[in-house]
Structure formats: structure tokens, C-alpha cells
Nucleic acid binder design. Structure first.
Lengths: 109, 109
DNA sequence: ACGATATATATCCGTTAGGGTATTCTCGGA
DNA sequence: TCCGAGAATACCCTAACGGATATATATCGT
């Protein structure tokens, strides 16, 4: 699902909506008001967020109430965090390897 | 630059390359070997990563050595982390607001 | 100086994205 | 029961994407 989540977040308009949803639930109309896009466009943006698992919807009369699904955000956060850990470990390992005169290039594996 | 970074990471092939680069520098050829894409495609993927600020390049003879630019990753990580903080604060605030009988909807702002 | 190797650019192609307008569907209220 | 509002879907259009092949551009080894 990473692909879908990252793709969803890559669009600035959708990111605005996600940011708003971090502060609380909102209807499609409220979210659409935050962005210079016509209503059908907003609806499509929301369906992208839905399919990425970033939000879920609940009907409330004629409105749809959207709510953030923080697990999807966390998934990306964890991925990045893990990469950063690997990177840090590499930096640490680099010193010892250099001390041993080893090549630090991937190529050398 | 957020847009560019997220867009760059949204592609699985590019993500494979980024993951590899977390473990250390690599040449274009080495990175291309990790992915079922012809050489020109690899070159273009790398230029996307470059323009997103995720990597930088250093010539080494006829090869180009790519290196991760962890700041770009951190930028996204910080964004997500911040959203998660906002979300957590909302959860906390929710309790007190509910206790006061206030509406927790964005609409009510 | 020449051929081989490593990358990048140019060009073409099918697919996806994002936006707009028109339309449909579904409730709620009078 | 009919009207209006909120939201989704259907289409259409243009631009961007990702890949492939063919072609430059360096640079190394001989």
C-alpha cells in the first residue's frame, strides 16, 4: 500500500486535506473549501485518499464525514525511520571499515 | 520540495534504489541492476531522485557514484511526525471537549 | 588513436493523473 | 411529494509518467 499512500500524499491539494483531517473529522464540502478545485475534483481526491487507506468515510445524512486513518501515515513514517536507521548504522560502520582499509562501496559486496 | 520527494518515493523502482543507497553509495549501473528496467530508464529514475534532492552524484571516471541525501528523507519524516503529533493532541483534546459537551467537528470552528 | 564500457539524451508510445462540465443519486426539509 | 443541497459518477481533454529503442557523450584500456 506504500505506493498508493505516497502517491496520494504527493499531491499538494490532497496534502492540505490530510493536514486538515489531522485536526479532526470533516465533511467532503469542508475539505473541498480548502482547495481551489471544483467539487467533482475534490470527490476524486477523496477517493484517492480512501483507496490509499489514509481516510475512512461515514455517512451523516446527505454529507460524508471523513476521518484520518493514522495507521497509513504511520506506515510511511516507519519506512522512512527504518531507512534512516540503516543510514545511521552505515555511518557508524563506515568508520570501522575505513579503519580496516576496506572499501565502503556497495560494489564491493 | 515535498511534492517532488514524495513523487519520487512513490515509484517502487525508485524506492528500491533509495533503499540500496541507504546501505551505501552505488554507481548508476549497480542501482540499475536492482530493477527490471532498461538502462535509459534507470538514468531517468536517477535524475528524478536527483531533482527531488534525495541523492547527489559524483563522477568517478566513466561511472557516476550516487549517494543518499538523508535531509530529503528527513523532511518527509518530519512532516509525517508533525501530523501525527497534531493527531495525538486532537485525541487528547477530544476527551476534555467531550467532557464539556462541545462538538469535536472541524465544522464547528 | 581506437574500441569497449558506462551514462545520459532524444524520441516515440501507451497509460495514468488531474481538472472541468454535465449528470445522477440520495437525503432532508417544506 | 417535490425541491434543494451534498456528494459521487460519467466523460472529455491535456499534460505528465514510465518504459523501450536508438543515439550521443565521455572515459578507460590497449
Amino acid at each position: 500500500m506504500m505506493d498508493a499512500v505516497l502517491h496520494a500524499l504527493a499531491d499538494p491539494h490532497r496534502r492540505v486535506m490530510v493536514e486538515a483531517l489531522c485536526a479532526g473529522e470533516a465533511t467532503a464540502g469542508e475539505l473541498g473549501a480548502l482547495v481551489p478545485v471544483a467539487q467533482p475534483g475534490v470527490s476524486r481526491h477523496l477517493s484517492v485518499l480512501r483507496e490509499a487507506g489514509l481516510v475512512d468515510v461515514r455517512p451523516d445524512g446527505q454529507r460524508r464525514i471523513y476521518r484520518l486513518q493514522p495507521a497509513a501515515l504511520a506506515e510511511v513514517g516507519d519506512w522512512i525511520e527504518h531507512r534512516q536507521q540503516v543510514w545511521e548504522q552505515r555511518i557508524a560502520a563506515l568508520h570501522t571499515e575505513v579503519a580496516r582499509g576496506k572499501r565502503q562501496r556497495l560494489r564491493s559486496e
